[in-house]
Design a protein around this nucleic acid. Sequence first.
DNA 1: CTTCCGTTAAT
DNA 2: TTAACGGAA
Length: 418
Amino acid sequence: MLACLSSLRQRYRDLGSDLEIRIGDPATILPALADRYGADAVVWNVDYSGLAREREAAVRTSLRAHGIDVTTFDDVYLHPPGSITNNAGDPYAVFSYFWEKWTAREPDSPHPSPSPTDLYPVSGPELPTRRKLGCVPPEADVPPGGIEAGTERLAAFCADAIYAYDANRDRPAANGTSRLSPHLKWGTLGIRTVREMVDRAGAEAPNQPGADSCEAFARQLAWRDFYGHVLAEKPDTVSTAYRTYERPIQWRADPDGVQAWKDGMTGFPIVDAGMRQLRREAFMHNRVRMIVASFLTKDLLVDWRTGYAWFRERLVDHDTANDVGGWQWAAGTGTDAQPYFRIFNPTIQGERYDPDADYIRTYVPELQGVATDVIHGWNDLDAADRTTAAPAYPAPILNHADRRELAIEMFETARGGD
DNA sequence: CTTCCGTTAAT
DNA sequence: TTAACGGAA
């Protein structure tokens, strides 16, 4: 966020103005600023979460009371929440049909930047420090932020890696994802610009697999729009289940298990690698996000909201709609008709998506010199062999097969069975 | 025009 | 298991 503010401030300075930064209640600060500069109107892009909408309503009321006009734009999504419905006019609860409608719809072109006339010579307080903002995690090694970094990342991705996206996207060691999520979250890339570049890459694709790969990436942009639709339609789903069961799901309290999960000390290598990447980089590969989410909810049997809160605190790309959507999907309380008993096996996931265990070794130093089959077989090794292979790495903290049975039972009970 | 199935497919 | 569709009733 600080890198983004710094980048935006530089843009205004280059134009002979500045960015004025205030911290506090926008319903008080914005009318005061508008008065001070004699502004007729305040303009912003709409945010769609429940809290954001409450905030906006308060700011709007306050500005109107001061006789100041408000204009808002839909800028976050390609197709704004509510704009895509099923044939009955209702919101979609399943992605695949949403995707059909989404692809059939012509997207807007990028909007031109406002022309810089009548800029004021403002001077606000300096950027706050990470420490002053209470940044968590202060130690994380985050990628460069800001408009320039975002533009560079998009250009680099669309020039090359996007053609291998479909082949690499589920291989965390390949690092083949776009890494655009922080820029989409912080607004340092416009979604229409992203879509335009992706479409252009698709049109210029050297072959059919390349074009299909670009479409596979566009599908991820559609997921983002989909979860935006879902959250705007049901803002309560930030804290309550999208799908309700007959009885409340009996999640467990397991503070030790949750701590091991957060620390990357569960003894399931792919889970631990993901959780440590999160601490180290404030980022996690998306395939691994699904694996760790399944582990928390279906192996530790802990409420998805505990996991969501941790992601919200640690992820540089935390986005309410995406993270709530993803967590509820993994927990079996969300959109997309899924058999509730579909539970990830962390060992099989590790073998399938990190076959050479390179991702695991990158983030779990205790396993650095350990053979691939020993890493993937960690669950079945006996204690003596574990100690020999990697004395500092923990034994599995639970039995997946047992927990899988308990998870199924937990959902059977919630459905109203015995 | 509404409701009732059969079909399809699901990060 | 179930949303969504679409043709049949």
